[in-house]
Write a protein that binds this DNA or RNA. Sequence first.
DNA 1: TCCGCAATTTACAGCGCTGTAAGCCGAGTG
DNA 2: CACTCGGCTTACAGCGCTGTAAATTGCGGA
Lengths: 340, 340
Amino acid sequence: MAAIRLQDVAAHAGVSMKTVSNVVHNYPHVSETMRAKVQKAIDELGYRPNALGRRLATGHTGMLALAFSFVTIPYFAELAQVMTDEARKRGYRLLLEQTNNTLEGERAIVSTEEAGLVDGLIFQPAQMSPVELARHRGDVPLVLLGEGPAPVGFDHVMIDNIAAADAVTSHLIALGRRRIAFVGHEEGALAETSRQRLAGYQQALHRAGIPLDAQLLIASRTVSSHDSAEAVGHALDRRVSFDAIVSRDDLAAIGALRALQERGFSVPGDVALTGWDAIPVGAFTHPSLTTVQADMHALAVVALDMLEERISGYDGIGRHRLVDFELVIRESAPAVSAVS
Amino acid sequence: MAAIRLQDVAAHAGVSMKTVSNVVHNYPHVSETMRAKVQKAIDELGYRPNALGRRLATGHTGMLALAFSFVTIPYFAELAQVMTDEARKRGYRLLLEQTNNTLEGERAIVSTEEAGLVDGLIFQPAQMSPVELARHRGDVPLVLLGEGPAPVGFDHVMIDNIAAADAVTSHLIALGRRRIAFVGHEEGALAETSRQRLAGYQQALHRAGIPLDAQLLIASRTVSSHDSAEAVGHALDRRVSFDAIVSRDDLAAIGALRALQERGFSVPGDVALTGWDAIPVGAFTHPSLTTVQADMHALAVVALDMLEERISGYDGIGRHRLVDFELVIRESAPAVSAVS
DNA sequence: TCCGCAATTTACAGCGCTGTAAGCCGAGTG
DNA sequence: CACTCGGCTTACAGCGCTGTAAATTGCGGA
């Protein structure tokens, strides 16, 4: 079935293409008679506008892209969901792109070989150096997410990881814990996310006058439940002792929980535990996870606001925004009052 | 910064647009001299082809869409990941679309107001009636996924849910369990997925000569960990007794696990438990989940094969393919030998 | 009846790119 | 030496749509 074109409708209705176009777009200055006649032709022919033609002509596509490492990471799935809804609300369609957490993947995103496909890009980088990122050609409006490299001059949104890590660590301290481990950061080069969360953790310890014990920094080969379970398991087997764990994220916390339970430790009795990201399954582990929840809706709103400003021509300096977070207190590190 | 066009490069290099186009596309019959000259111009100007123009001219976009309810459901996140990789391997870019599991959402997908944006569509419907789906305008090639409505005449891929449910139930029977509950199907109208899994469950019971006990069909308000935990909790509180659970999916299993553990039941000691989908976190619950794993790679390959055939003009009758599954035996319902 | 004005409608020129067919040029052939 | 042949390059006409500016229409008032 050859596609029906605007041209065909115009011929069928005996009017000009532009009039059909006007009807399709509900352009106000069209007489009722004409509108009815054209609409009839549209219906009869089953005409549907071709997105490409329209977009070529108008110069913008109504599509935005959101790029991050993997959709299979629950945090990003959630982000994708929230962003998609918020973008749709603003009349955009959101494409999801995965970088697979590789440098090439990220390069492919930023140096999009093909221009013109999307009106703007929201990107959470992890591998690229800020220097390289800064060389990004300015032709597509860009907003950066997360704690990764964010060269000055780019719009950027993140949550205050240091404050959040401080808050979550302080919560454990308030619970009376003193030997608080940090679990799940990378063994090798620390990602900026891990660095900041560690910094907040240290800050809270310091303020409480608790010395930092390097033994309690339990790194993991990769950021995953599997490697975190392994790392915590090893630590326990080496008789490293602690009474609380701040995990880099919920997946790490789930791994840690598993390692603890396998060895008969009770949570939060023996070891209190916190996660990060508030992934859905964290509410159904046993015990459920106390965690840090970024205000993801605000994140989406702020990011899209900035992106839309850029799209509509704003060309000022890079803005830097923090969005709020919230401690979600659940069983693995209960409220202070619940303990006393 | 106005974008550089093919025209600009052509002018800069002093050749025709078409020659530049040929160089960009590595068309073989271009002399080395010419190629070098043009390439130089491309580099100097920083030219990048405009996707829209190209696509308008060639008539296809190199993009496919994958539509399902929510990315936040781990199974779909995984599906998206695998499909994206497989599509990329074939030179396509995959757009993800969410229907939010609503009828409007699904209608929006199928009756795409805007044509021409993607070359083909892979769609896992859940709400639409087969009749309505069958009215889908044939202009964009379509492959259906899952157990939902699949009118004859459409290409369709799924796993054999009945066989898988039979296998997983039989595994529990082999473990010596006799009071086997089914958990997590919808309270109201059953989705086809649930229906088939229940059928396989009944089939296995029947073959083993175990009568079906309606008390052991523990429905849940929605398919989610939350509602499944609640439903199983209620059943336990009502003293419904069972020694195994077949869950409709891993999320339901996680909810069930939580309900059991809260009440002091041991898994698999008191109650053996199976899930479905092999979501990553299922390996790190305590106990880890025995589950059904669809061969998702095969699913992606088959679906994309069929879609590509349609795209390249095949117009025959609808094909119906099954892909394999595998039982992943973990702690929540261990291997038979491990128990004896 | 004719004119001027506002409201509609139309013609046309692209948006950036590619397919086709025609044009050009040097080498090989009789 | 004229001429064909094949490889390279170019001119041109869209792909389907929209913005602009110009043309047309209808209407009230002079």
